[in-house]
């Protein structure tokens, strides 16, 4: 019976460890995801605008540059809603975000009521969250950053990765196809550096508008990990922009998470104080 006691204690420990690793996990997906995804997938940064080279022999890189040109802006302000398909119910979270380059972003949650007023600031590789309910500014620090964000496959760290795709990946056009009724070029991106989350990616890019319509992320082994579908491409301030994105973890069962931009503005005047900790309160 003694070793069974020990076993029981060990089991407590184990359940405890599990509880710890559950911290950032929920079956439902995440609030933060919207911000993260929009900053990771659709770089808001002022990327290189120089490549106006030959279009005939389109290299992967030049296509990515064009995507960058199309999507990027000095800054952007947007409102979005995120629909999280839970096992039980769906829920919608709306937020307003300001971002400038890749290094600064600020979001405020508008609904649901419980989360309204929660603000998040990402600044130079650091992340703070302010919550009116506790009236506290909490910094997500150290190894917490490496944990995945609420059951998603992105960690806080991913969210902090502000490098350009063209800096990280070698890309080449592998084939052409049609997707959502549009001609697309399929790009294969292979990491050039070692410290990236995904070793290989595949992007389906509208051959005319240079908007990504689908993106797949692969593990080093070639295993498909997740897929993003981008839809509802609209012309906004002279650029083509996908307003809806559906994100799905391919290893897990479930319907994924849907993001929708409800309002978006590029190249606005954003007061500098937005991107300071003072604006959290």
């Amino acid at each position: 019976m003694f070793n069974k006691n020990i076993e029981t204690i060990k089991r407590f420990q184990n359940s405890h460890l599990k509880a710890k690793s559950r911290i950032m996990f929920s079956h439902n997906g995440a609030l933060m995801l919207a911000v993260i995804l929009f900053s990771v997938i659709l770089p808001g940064g002022s990327h290189a605008r120089s490549a106006r080279g030959e279009q005939t022999q389109q290299s992967g890189e030049s296509i990515l540059r064009k995507v960058d040109q199309n999507l990027s802006s000095k800054n952007r302000i947007f409102e979005s809603s995120m629909i999280i398909h839970g096992r039980r119910s769906d829920r919608t979270v709306t937020s307003r975000s300001w971002s400038e380059g890749d290094k600064k972003s600020f979001s405020e949650y508008l609904s649901p009521a419980a989360e309204a007023g929660t603000k998040m600031l990402k600044l130079e590789g650091q992340l703070w969250i302010y919550t009116p309910s506790a009236d506290r500014t909490i910094q997500i620090s150290g190894h917490m950053l490496r944990q995945s964000v609420m059951g998603s496959d992105l960690s806080y760290e991913d969210m902090m990765d502000d490098r350009k795709l063209t800096d990280i990946y070698d890309s080449r056009v592998v084939s052409k196809d049609t997707l959502q009724g549009r001609d697309v070029l399929i790009l294969e991106l292979t990491a050039r550096v070692t410290d990236v989350a995904y070793h290989r990616q595949k992007m389906w890019i509208d051959a005319e508008r240079f908007v990504p319509l689908r993106q797949e992320m692969y593990a080093k082994s070639g295993q498909l990990l997740k897929r993003m579908e981008l839809k509802d491409v609209e012309r906004i301030q002279g650029r083509w922009f996908p307003k809806t994105m559906i994100y799905k973890d391919m290893l897990k069962e479930g319907k994924g998470t849907e993001f929708r931009m409800t309002k978006i503005q590029f190249d606005q005047q954003i007061p500098a104080h937005i991107f300071t900790k003072a604006s959290l309160r």
Partner: peptide, 16 residues
């Protein structure tokens, strides 16, 4: 079963 992990550099990898 599929197992997914991150290598020393943080890159996701998954294998059966």
């Amino acid at each position: 079963m599929v197992v997914r992990w991150r290598d020393a550099n943080g890159t996701f990898d998954a294998r059966e």
